[in-house]
């Protein structure tokens, strides 16, 4: 059983979001980087749990990015995983990244590929689906539970107002959301072990870039809060009806 876990780096959730170069680039000055929470908390931890249940399982991590991602990759390896692969290129857009990962999956003959539900910076939610299509594999998105019995996976996925449970034979691509696993904190042994785990660097394959960011912007600030006294709750209901026209 070979699992590939896709890892990406994102700005820390408290990072100040600002842009430079005439609003065309994210301002990374002073920004702390973290492993994308969906990748770290759910896909990676679930992969580790599967290995804990079956020691013969091999976990590889993959990232498409330049050398500055390596500290993030080591952090992920501190949680678990046997080795990591970094595809040495800028992550131009979802299709380009998916094409790179598809090449890795084909070479490594993985049985299972995990992505996070989305990255918390570009919120594309696209890599998993694109990857599955490029590999002609089934894709279960927004998984909230993932179980394995032999080569058969049972997956719950989020649907409007509930969940759908489905069965699928490996190989499969799955995007993981809350529920699949619980966040873990790396321990000292893991951090030490991560230092010597292999981190292979491979060069990118030729692939198309289908989209371009033209500019960024920030939403307009709120006008300010209108406070209503706690003993005058009827007034709030009136405002919501007559002024905001919401109820």
């Amino acid at each position: 059983m070979k699992i590939l876990v896709c890892i990406s780096k994102t700005p820390d959730t408290t990072a100040k979001i600002a842009f430079t170069s005439n609003n065309t680039k994210f301002d990374a000055a002073g920004v702390q980087w973290i492993i994308n929470p969906y990748d770290e908390w759910y896909s990676l931890v679930r992969a580790i749990e599967l290995k804990e249940a079956d020691a013969s399982t091999i976990i590889h991590l993959v990232n498409v990015g330049l050398a500055d991602v390596e500290p993030i990759i080591r952090k992920a390896l501190a949680l678990g995983g046997d080795e990591a692969i970094r595809v040495n290129t800028d992550s131009h857009d979802s299709f380009y990244v998916a094409s790179q990962i598809a090449a890795i999956v084909k070479q490594g003959a993985y049985d299972l590929v995990f992505t996070g539900k989305e990255t918390i910076d570009y919120n594309g939610s696209a890599i998993g689906g694109m990857l599955a299509e490029l590999l002609e594999l089934p894709y279960i998105s927004l998984a909230t539970k993932f179980d394995l019995a032999g080569s058969k996976a049972t997956v719950s996925r989020e649907i409007e107002g509930g969940e759908e449970i489905c069965e699928v034979e490996l190989p499969v691509v799955v995007s993981c959301a809350k529920g699949v696993a619980e966040q873990r904190i790396p321990n000292m042994r893991g951090i030490m072990a991560a230092r010597t785990k292999p981190l292979k660097v491979v060069e990118p394959v030729a692939a198309d870039v289908l989209t371009n960011v033209q500019s960024f912007g920030l939403p307009p600030a709120k006008a300010g809060v209108k406070l209503v006294a706690p003993d005058n709750v009827d007034e709030l209901a009136r405002l919501l009806r007559e002024e905001a026209k919401m109820i």
Binding site: P11, I17, F19, I120, D121, Y122, N123, T211, N212, V213, Q214, S215, F216, G217, L218, P219
Partner: peptide, 11 residues
């Protein structure tokens, strides 16, 4: 983008 903290214009 950035979970609603910003937007991007994509061509």
């Amino acid at each position: 983008v950035f979970s609603g903290k910003a937007f991007a214009n994509i061509s």
